[in-house]
Amino acid sequence: MKLLFAAFTGLVFGVGIALSGMMDPAKVLNFFDLAGAWDPSLAFVMAGALVVTFLGYRLVWRRRAPIFEDRFQVPTATAIDGKLVGGAALFGIGWGIAGFCPGAALPALGTGRWEVVLFLAAVVAGFWLRRAVTALPPMRPAQ
């Protein structure tokens, strides 16, 4: 049941991504192209998603636990550090280069387009690169 629920949740999210225009790089890049062919549609995506999630989370959190687990698992970190800001800055640069973000590319896999597979393979390479870099021993100061 839990896996069926997860799959249904994914379908709802994916239909939202597809209808909204988020899986269309031409539309995403135009949203960011304020000085050119600006298409403000994606502001409406964000507004719709935030209203539902903001209110829905608060309703859900009145429960003691989710349906299929014994507790809610929500991030607790609050540190504003270089990793957060630098990582977010890099993420935006990559988004602006490719026009895809991970949450849009996952449902887009269902279109069968090879470019989506290429993008997600590159994203995984980026994850791996971050793991490889942060696993390095700290550099010794120069003598």
């Binding site: 993420f91 973000c101 993008f119 590159a122 994203v123 390479a125 980026g126």
Partner: peptide, 16 residues
Amino acid sequence: IALGGVVVGLGASLGS
């Protein structure tokens, strides 16, 4: 797409 994807992956992973 490939370049953007690597940068997206690196950035999203660092920035959680």
